[in-house]
Amino acid sequence: MKDTYVSDLQPNQIIVSDFLVQAKELRSKKAGGNYLALALSDKTGEVEAKIWDNVEQVEPTFARDDFVKVKGAVQLYQNRPQLTVHKLKRLEDREVDLADFFPRSARDPEEMWRELMEVVAAVEKAPLRALLEKILSKPEIAERLKLAPAAKSLHHAYLGGLLEHVLSLCRLTKLVVQNYRGIDADLVIAGVVLHDLGKIYELSYARSFAYTTEGQLLGHMILELEIVHKALAELPEFPRPLQTLLEHLIISHHGQYEFGSPKLPMFPEALLLHYMDDLDSKLQNMESLLKRDQASGVEWTRYSASLGRPLLDTQKFLSRSEPPPEEPGAQPESEPTDEVN
């Protein structure tokens, strides 16, 4: 187990601990010369780090995605911890416990898998249930889905995050369909289970979260259509119109052309899938940002490029010290006025 995690960092602290290098950039100092700007991480979060001295000697000794042992000083920069690195040494994989570095869902993956199987078993339309069971019965798909993050960084960006996201949408579906007549709940559930399944091949998560070559070239929608079509080849009686609806659910779930959706949602179930997916991903993103900056002591988080805004921590805002109440019967002070009687 690591000595110090990112979540443990306190101002004016000298630490020696192991981290994963998420980002590494050589930058120029204003006064001349170079420095290294790093993003170091473990399972509890990420911290900015700087190397100011001996940059030319240190820079070639490690790379992005390497594990490193660091000695440095924690400082506050813009009310958030930042690490000034004094010494750094690259580590071999065998020298670290990988469980210290990769964030995981708080839920047990096997427990989540059982919940998903219950959801699929409750699908009433036999063709949809048969398709979902066919896909999820593939051992490779099952193992990858239990482990995959839902995104590289935007939402549910931790091991098991994709399965957690899918189950959250399943629960949302059961609630929302009670409020709207005519919604085909089975069709929505099928879309929920399949809409991001291609991410098990789009993302690599053996070290830091990144895109695979397939993911970069094709994207998860194409990859999940391939998964669906392979399964459908084993189900020759599957209704062709139902296949078309499923394909549309997959390719339209981003909702807008500018968000990478080849088609806009064109029937209610597709629109519902898009908005539930957007809601769940954005709320989880907000939760992560607020948690990351919880120890900063400030009410506002850093600006989020993905959300296009900083976030207000309402608990910090509401817990501010209130001004003392006025004494009973006290008269307010008269205010200066420019009025002339």
Rank of each mutant, 00 (worst) to 15 (best):
P328Q: 10
P81M: 06
R320Q: 13
S261I: 06
Y275G: 09
Q57E: 11
K134F: 08
L197S: 13
Q284I: 09
L194T: 06
V96I: 08
G191R: 03
Y205N: 07
F101Q: 06
Y211V: 15
C170Q: 12
N12F: 12
H165V: 03
Y158F: 11
L20Y: 01
G219D: 04
K29I: 08
F101H: 00
K291V: 06
G329P: 08
R207P: 03
Q216C: 14
Q22D: 12
L187S: 01
E234H: 02
V119Y: 03
M286R: 13
L38K: 14
N12S: 15
H229E: 13
S288C: 01
V55D: 11
C170F: 13
C170R: 08
K43A: 07
E111G: 02
Q284K: 10
Q57P: 09
P241G: 07
D108Q: 13
Y275W: 04
L249Q: 01
R181H: 04
H274E: 11
L218S: 01
L225N: 00
P236T: 04
F102G: 05
E25K: 14
R309M: 08
P109K: 01
M112C: 15
G308V: 01
K174S: 11
E258D: 04
E258S: 14
A126G: 01
P149M: 10
V6K: 02
L91I: 02
H274R: 15
P11V: 14
L131D: 07
V6F: 03
V192N: 05
S105E: 02
K138Y: 09
V228F: 09
E164G: 02
P81G: 12
G45D: 11
G33P: 08
H156R: 01
K282R: 10
A63D: 15
L264R: 13
T4W: 10
D186N: 05
L283P: 00
R90I: 06
L272D: 02
Y180F: 06
K230E: 08
L312C: 03
I200F: 15
K30Y: 04
K282C: 03
A37P: 00
E133V: 02
G32W: 01
P332R: 13
L167E: 03
V6N: 05
K30Q: 11
L203T: 08
R207H: 12
A233G: 00
G182C: 00
Y35L: 12
L175T: 07
R171S: 05
T44C: 05
S17Y: 08
I200N: 02
V58E: 10
L235H: 03
L169F: 03
L40A: 09
L163T: 06
V166R: 02
I250N: 01
K263V: 13
R207K: 14
G308R: 04
A142V: 04
L163M: 10
L76S: 06
K125S: 01
I222E: 00
V6C: 14
K69Y: 08
S17D: 05
D184Q: 10
G32K: 10
F317G: 09
P310D: 03
G297L: 13
I251H: 07
L307S: 02
L218I: 00
H86M: 08
P262K: 10
Q331H: 09
L26K: 15
L279V: 03
L312V: 15
Q178V: 01
E143P: 00
